[in-house]
């Protein structure tokens, strides 16, 4: 049976799309609003974008967010790559190892965030960017792991043998054949991890020290002081960065194939 032949498929799809994206469209729209009250439209303006660019606390929060996402995504991708290479081979406890690797996806983040905070305090780890990088790396691993694992799964086992047959030792065969072929998966994994870290509020909120606010934490604290179109503008910038990154990695992945 073809799902397209169900009645009202088109109408229901449109409704779902509206439901999903109307809030985002409204938010982006009002970021170009000149009026100080976020919900009353007067006329179009780029004023708020100019203001956030000039705001030093937003600049520092943005820098923290980017440094954090870059470090956490890089570390998570390296660990995920090694894990994916290891679990590509069959061994007795493989299913268990894979389950542990994917666990952060289903654990309630609030629990992990509180637990991490308590652990860090108990160990005397100083809260701030370093602590956040450690915690972000941990929950980014499954996001980086899944695309890399999928890529390995689809890879022909014969390429490694062919490389070794052509005088490349294990390391050379990995560098010249396996790694380039995994590259689209690695890119996708890195991007997912990066976007996940960039977007994270809970863990950052608990672990941020003085002066190490990230963008989501900054947005949260400014909302308490009242909603201004400034927040719309920051959110729009974050949205654009995320969408650009994911599209970029998607198109790079297609080019590689």
């Amino acid at each position: 049976m073809n799902i397209r032949h169900f009645p009202m498929t088109r109408e229901i799809s449109l409704l779902v799309l509206v439901y999903l994206y109307v809030p985002v469209v409204v938010l982006v729209g009002y970021s170009f609003n000149a009026n100080r009250t976020a919900t009353v439209w007067s006329h179009a303006s780029l004023d708020w974008y100019a203001r956030i660019l000039a705001n030093p606390s937003i600049q520092s929060a943005a820098k923290n967010s980017l440094v954090l996402a870059l470090c956490a995504a890089t570390a998570a991708t390296v660990i995920a790559l090694l894990a994916a290479l290891a679990t590509a081979r069959a061994f007795p406890s493989r299913d268990g190892v894979e389950a542990v690797l994917k666990m952060p996806l289903i654990l309630p983040e609030i629990v992990v965030a509180v637990a991490t905070l308590m652990l860090f305090v108990a160990l005397g780890v100083q809260l701030g960017l370093g602590a956040m990088i450690l915690a972000h790396t941990a929950f980014c691993i499954p996001f980086a792991y899944l695309p890399i694992r999928a890529r390995i799964e689809g890879l022909n086992q014969g390429y490694g043998e062919a490389a070794q047959d052509l005088y490349a030792n294990r390391f050379r065969s990995f560098r010249r054949v396996t790694l380039p072929l995994l590259w689209p998966g690695i890119m996708a994994g890195f991007t997912l991890a990066f976007v996940t870290s960039l977007d994270d509020f809970l863990t950052s909120f608990f672990l941020s020290g003085p002066g190490t606010t990230t963008l989501p934490v900054y947005i949260f604290s400014s909302i308490k002081a009242g909603i201004t179109p400034e927040i719309n503008a920051i959110s729009t910038v974050m949205l654009v960065i995320s969408v650009l990154l994911v599209s970029l990695s998607f198109f790079l992945g297609r080019l590689r194939r």
Binding site: G158, Y159, E161, A162, L166, P180, L181
Partner: peptide, 17 residues
Amino acid sequence: FRRPVNTVFQNYALFPH
């Protein structure tokens, strides 16, 4: 990689990249 032989594989295994 230390054997002076080379193989033509059934599925060719040409490196796609």
